[in-house]
Write a protein that binds this DNA or RNA. Structure first.
Length: 311
RNA sequence: GGACGGGUGGGUGAGUGGCUAAAACCAGCAGACUGUAAAUCUGCCGCUCCUUGCGGGCUACGGAGGUUCGAAUCCUCCCCCGUCCA
């Protein structure tokens, strides 16, 4: 007899049917859906991020989408804060939280917490970038090597993004990345977490991805991107880094054929799915199901897993 | 029937006598990743063996022969594809 609240997590690669399964589980178990997806937190990115349209939500509340504008930056830390608030809210209303997770980092940030590292500093990053441009390739990595040998050894010299983050932590916190990480982090407490992983056969998943991209185009994905552009979202906005949005923006300004854009989107999505699978494989304590979340046998199995109690 | 051009590893395609299991790119596979994460980055990618080594063996550039110490690369014949002429 525990007083732990329950949290059901549905995780898996894109197009594996997480959303559908989440809704099914919510219907049967009196739950609400918490989306854990780094792109769905953006408003006005709807078709391309595969948000569930309201009619298909079947009355199940969906949280943690549409939190910021397309030109804003969102972070794992911010996601964790918002998710904790939402969890507390569901707890008060006695609803079962069902987290549908496609963004591994955000899921980990919520479940395991983040180290006590400083949040990103745009000013510092800008200065580092400018300096790097003047000093040429390799400069940032050499700088990091001087500041934090351990971090530099771990990060590839061309991985500018991670190098900058490490320099930032070292400079702002005054401590090495390793030291900060070793000092621990606080994970989610008070929940019994059940993780259900969707892992459909690779070939079938890829086929579904290709088809889904076509359906997105038919559903008006290109128009959605056109509205973002005409709505004043700048070319360097976060939103235009996402799969589909970058290709279609190129298509709209005439530098990419429509068919070629679609091909590239499908390609990028397949690769993305691959990376998600790599990440989730390491996730501890997952009950894996070898199918799509909208298949009835999979849903039945998931329902059993979600309900059974683990000692 | 004739004249050219071409047939290279899953795909595109470079390579015109040794440094070539064969560039590059794509696809694929595997991995890393604690505040940009749908991002960013890394490795593998003919088969095989082991004492896993800048290691050994085998197979490979349409087919069969030949020249050569040595051929994807040169020669001969054949097959196939494309364009053009009849």
């Amino acid at each position: 007899m525990s007083d732990l609240a329950r949290l059901v997590v549905v995780l898996g690669p894109t197009a594996s049917g997480k959303s559908a399964l989440g809704i099914t589980l919510a219907e049967h178990l009196g739950g609400e859906v918490l989306v854990c997806d780094s792109t769905q937190v953006y408003r006005r990115l709807t078709i391309g991020t595969a948000k569930v349209p309201p009619p298909e939500q079947r009355g199940i509340a969906h949280h943690l989408t549409d939190l910021v504008e397309p030109n804003e930056l969102f972070t794992a830390g911010e996601y964790r804060r918002r998710a904790l608030e939402t969890l507390a809210d569901l707890g008060r209303r006695n609803k079962l939280p069902i987290l549908t997770a496609g963004t591994g980092l955000y899921l980990r940030a919520l479940l395991e917490g983040l180290a006590d590292a400083p949040t990103r500093s745009e000013g510092l990053r800008k200065r580092l970038r400018q300096k790097a441009e003047r000093r040429g390739p390799g400069y940032l990595h050499r700088l990091l090597a001087r500041l934090d040998r351990e971090a530099a050894d771990r990060i590839a010299s061309r991985d500018t993004q991670k190098i900058i983050r490490s320099i930032e932590i070292r400079l702002l916190a005054g401590r090495s990345v390793g030291a900060i990480h070793r000092s621990g982090r606080t994970g989610l407490e008070g929940y019994e977490v059940r993780k259900i992983g969707l892992l459909p056969p690779r070939a079938a998943l890829y086929r579904r991805i290709d088809k889904r991209v076509e359906r997105m185009i038919e559903a008006g994905f290109i128009e959605e991107v056109r509205e973002l552009v005409s709505g004043g979202v700048p070319a360097d906005a976060k939103a235009f880094q996402f799969i589909g949005y970058s290709e279609l923006r190129a298509h709209l300004d005439g530098s990419l054929e429509r068919v070629e854009a679609i091909r590239q989107i499908q390609q990028a999505t397949r690769r993305f799915a691959k990376r998600q699978i790599t990440w989730f494989r390491k996730e501890p304590g997952v009950d894996w199901l070898a199918g799509f979340g909208d298949e009835s046998e999979v849903a039945a199995a998931a329902l059993r897993i979600a309900q059974e109690s683990r000692l």
